[in-house]
């Protein structure tokens, strides 16, 4: 026992961080993601100018001097469009994931903690939202209430939360039966404390993983909407570039390929980070 006295305290999160660091794919994903974030933040400052300006002849192929990715059907600089689009994609992705997780955790936590009629009502609500085809429903919202970025974010959040709510509820149902929760109740912890200080921190790992993946799917979602033309026409967006250049794929397939690769790499990087988090936080992989 005495040798243990000198042991360093290792919190579960510290151990998870250690596991994550050893996962090369996840670290690579994180590095790529940070690079994209840097581009989104700094890019528009360094590479200024309105991306919608016509700068050169339409369909200038990539590699032409000064235009790394060439120009699109309106002669707009593809690189500039991509850089400005990164900002939109990431902002919408993060904001929508935030909305999703906030709604999902609240609903899931209340349902899983209180059980009874509260759970019944909230889970019916969740099932109802799962019945609505996500993209169609957000198309309707955007069509009826206007295609601003804010509305797009809200629409994505509104259709995506059920997955988070289900996971949160399942974790709450599992953890609330564990003995340390009963022990905390016996130790005088109030309901609010049980929910947010005892159960929630222990329920977080799968929710964090889901939240990470949500950022990715929100980016895909935004790309889909803007591909269909349901976006703010005044901001550049990756999906929009693909959608508007779609008719010209025979003449200039790069106008579709390049922005697609941008989306692909971003979502891939997020998935790698999500997988890394999953492996690092999943208690099954660790001995008890």
């Amino acid at each position: 026992m005495s040798e243990q006295t000198h042991l360093k305290a290792r919190s579960p999160f510290a151990e998870a961080f250690e596991m994550f660091r050893r996962n090369h794919a996840a670290v690579a994903g994180l590095v790529i993601l940070l690079a994209i974030v840097a581009v989104a933040i700094l890019g528009p400052v360094l590479y200024s100018g309105n991306p919608f300006d016509m700068v050169w002849a339409p369909f200038t192929p990539p590699g032409t001097e000064g235009y790394l990715f060439g120009t699109d059907y309106l002669g707009r600089d593809l690189l500039s469009l991509l850089i400005h689009g990164a900002r939109v994609s990431l902002t919408v992705g993060l904001a929508a994931a935030f909305v999703t997780v906030t709604i999902g955790i609240t609903i899931g936590a209340l349902a899983g903690f209180y059980r009874g009629w509260v759970e019944e009502v909230l889970m019916r609500l969740t099932e109802f939202f799962q019945v609505l085809p996500t993209l169609l429903f957000s198309m309707v919202i955007v069509a009826l209430f206007g295609a601003s970025l804010l509305m797009i974010t809200i629409a994505i959040g509104l259709v995506s939360w059920p997955a988070v709510a289900r996971i949160t509820r399942a974790e709450f149902l599992r953890i609330r039966e564990l003995e340390y929760v009963t022990a905390a109740r016996a130790g005088g912890v109030r309901n609010g404390g049980l929910m947010f200080r005892v159960i929630l921190p222990n329920a977080l790992p799968p929710i964090i993983v889901q939240a990470a993946l949500m950022v990715g799917s929100a980016i895909l979602f935004e790309a889909g909407l803007s591909f269909l033309g349901l976006t703010d026409p005044n901001v550049a967006s990756w999906g929009q570039i693909i959608g508007s250049n779609r008719q010209y794929i025979l003449d200039a397939s790069y106008t579709v390929t390049v922005p697609g690769i941008a989306i692909f790499i971003t979502v891939l990087a997020i998935s790698l980070v999500g997988d890394g988090l999953n492996d690092a936080l999943n208690p099954k992989l660790r001995e008890r």
């Binding site: 919190s11 579960p12 564990l178 003995e179 340390y180 009963t182 022990a183 905390a184 109740r185 016996a186 130790g187 005088g188 005892v198 921190p201 222990n202 008890r288």
Partner: peptide
Amino acid sequence: RANVQVIFQDPYSSLNPR
């Protein structure tokens, strides 16, 4: 509750891991 406390069965799930 201060007057009655419980010692549980499972040493693995009776302590909050965090």
